[in-house]
Computed example of a mutant assay.
Amino acid sequence: MIYKYRQHTIKRMFERGITQADVQAALSSGRIVENYPTDYPFPSCLWLGYAGNRPLHIVYADTPQGERIIITVYEPDPAQWSTDFTTRLKP
């Protein structure tokens, strides 16, 4: 799989202390917690994975050319997510 990072994504990862190695580790195991089938130009999803003990949410889209576009990466806020980081809490 070829990973493509948007410039905005790289900037946010740097601000959040998340490396490309962290992203690859989190994508190596985990699961989709939300699907966004109507996203344009490609359907995307929210993935939950771990870089060591650190939970990471990764929004990505797969292209027909076999590329995975990393849209954003962040550590989920426990105040906004269930304890397993798979379900958004209602405000």
Rank of each mutant, 00 (worst) to 15 (best):
I18Q: 03
V73G: 10
I69V: 15
I10S: 05
A61N: 05
L48T: 07
D84F: 11
P64T: 06
I10R: 13
T86N: 01
I70H: 02
L27E: 02
P78E: 08
K11V: 09
I32N: 06
T72A: 00
W81N: 05
G66E: 04
K90S: 15
H57D: 06
Y36V: 02
G49C: 02
Y36A: 02
R31N: 08
V59S: 12
T63G: 07
A21W: 08
F42T: 00
T83Q: 12
D22R: 04
R68D: 08
T83I: 11
R31S: 12
I58Y: 04
I71R: 00
V33Y: 08
V59Q: 12
I18E: 05
T63A: 08
I18G: 01
Q7K: 13
A21V: 11
H57M: 11
K4G: 02
H57Y: 08
T19K: 00
W47F: 10
I10A: 08
L46V: 13
V23H: 05
I10K: 12
I71V: 13
T9R: 01
T38C: 04
P78W: 05
F42Q: 07
D22E: 06
F85E: 09
A51F: 06
A25L: 10
W47A: 07
S28T: 04
G17V: 01
E34A: 11
R68T: 15
I18R: 05
E15Y: 10
R6H: 14
R31G: 15
L46I: 04
V59Y: 00
Q80Y: 03
L46A: 08
K90Y: 11
D84L: 03
P41T: 06
K90R: 15
A25M: 12
I71H: 02
L27D: 05
R68S: 11
P37D: 07
T72S: 14
E15S: 13
H8E: 15
P78D: 09
E67A: 14
R6L: 15
R16F: 07
T87C: 03
P91N: 13
S28I: 00
E67M: 11
A26P: 10
H57L: 10
V73M: 10
R12C: 09
K4P: 01
Y74H: 15
I69A: 03
E67F: 12
V59A: 12
T19M: 04
Q80C: 09
L89Q: 10
E34S: 07
T86L: 04
T83N: 11
T86I: 11
F85P: 04
A51N: 08
G30L: 02
R68H: 06
T63I: 05
G49F: 00
Y40N: 13
I32M: 14
S28G: 15
V23F: 10
D39Q: 03
P55M: 06
I71P: 00
P64I: 05
R31A: 13
V73T: 09
R16H: 12
P91Y: 10
P43M: 01
K90E: 15
